[in-house]
Nucleic acid binder design. Sequence first.
DNA 1: AAAATGAAAAATGTATACAATATTATCTAA
DNA 2: TTAGATAATATTGTATACATTTTTCATTTT
Lengths: 206, 206
Amino acid sequence: MQKKEAPNNIQAYETLRDQILNGKIPANTKLTETMLADKLNISRTPIREAIIRLEEEGLVKNKYVYIPSETDIRHIFQVRSILEGFAAKYSADFISTESLNKLKEYIKTARNGDDNDKLKANYLFHQTIVEETHNPEIVKIINKMQSIIYLMRKTVTLQHRPHLIDEHEEICQEIENGNGEKAEKLVQDHLAKDLEFSINRLGITN
Amino acid sequence: MQKKEAPNNIQAYETLRDQILNGKIPANTKLTETMLADKLNISRTPIREAIIRLEEEGLVKNKYVYIPSETDIRHIFQVRSILEGFAAKYSADFISTESLNKLKEYIKTARNGDDNDKLKANYLFHQTIVEETHNPEIVKIINKMQSIIYLMRKTVTLQHRPHLIDEHEEICQEIENGNGEKAEKLVQDHLAKDLEFSINRLGITN
DNA sequence: AAAATGAAAAATGTATACAATATTATCTAA
DNA sequence: TTAGATAATATTGTATACATTTTTCATTTT
């Protein structure tokens, strides 16, 4: 049995999504159906369906590639902060030893690896904590924000925000100690710093 | 200038959404494009687009109308509890007098009005607190859960869960007192009770 | 010039035909 | 029977033509 290929509308959705996220399709681009259909060598029908998905996801708004304003980003980060804070608090009580070891591993990699490793390790650090809630709804919400988070993370790790890894270490420590309240607070402070650093460096405005 | 009518695909999305929510299209129904196209007297194209929207929203999964399991509902309620808890805490510090008066108004209506008034008042009570965050992301997430929440609310208010309104009153009180921590806790306990009551009465299983 | 008008062009929305898959029913061989 | 193959049917996916709406841009009017 051979693996069935995803239909064009799904593929189109995925490639467009990727291209928007990595900047190949820049912010504010008008997405015209015929233009995209030409580019991907398929008809307008699957393109339309891809665009609808992107719109529901919030990456496209009214046919234009959407860049969130500073206010938008602050709102998104508030949600992230609330949910990841909860996740950290929860982890302090319920984290598995495997996950805890993973966290330590990611800290090590983030200190020693190359840029790409660091990026991935920092992503996994946060993701592991979120997944430790074992609540797919929470994971889903965070994942939906990954597009913006990714941009921010790229900034803070590649531009070496000071103390970033130290903070990860502290968070990990408090989770290990079972100190949920402290862990929650640390995550929220940590994210607040990421936010300010990124907004500053990216020169985001309203 | 006359008001432009929404395109068929949007209208189809809205009517299907409504019909799923009020049970006209029962859970687990297979949504076939031709069948719906016939019923709404339009072609398959706009139907497909409507279904994609419903799928992105989570109301439809793999062409079937989706009913969340008990576990799903618990997960959803955990998110709701975290976010509404935050909203209550936030409100304690920042709520406007207008909103506070509204809350009191809704409590009164929920005590005296008819079933329909009660239902609406209880909805507005929670919605007002959520909106007081002035964070559209939070509002959006909660709204996306409204389908399930609606079901639950119908149960708890129409089957008169005891102390429901008393709890609203306490929450309102603590918000007015500026006691955020207490308000947060009360909201979370309140929602936990709603959840258990509803699951019990609706006979939801996995 | 600025605003208003209205063709021309472009883009979106819808129906439909046909192609590709998935599902169901039917039949055969163990 | 029943597991497996295969034909029949139903459903989904895609391209395309045409209809409708929106946008653009030149022209006229003030």
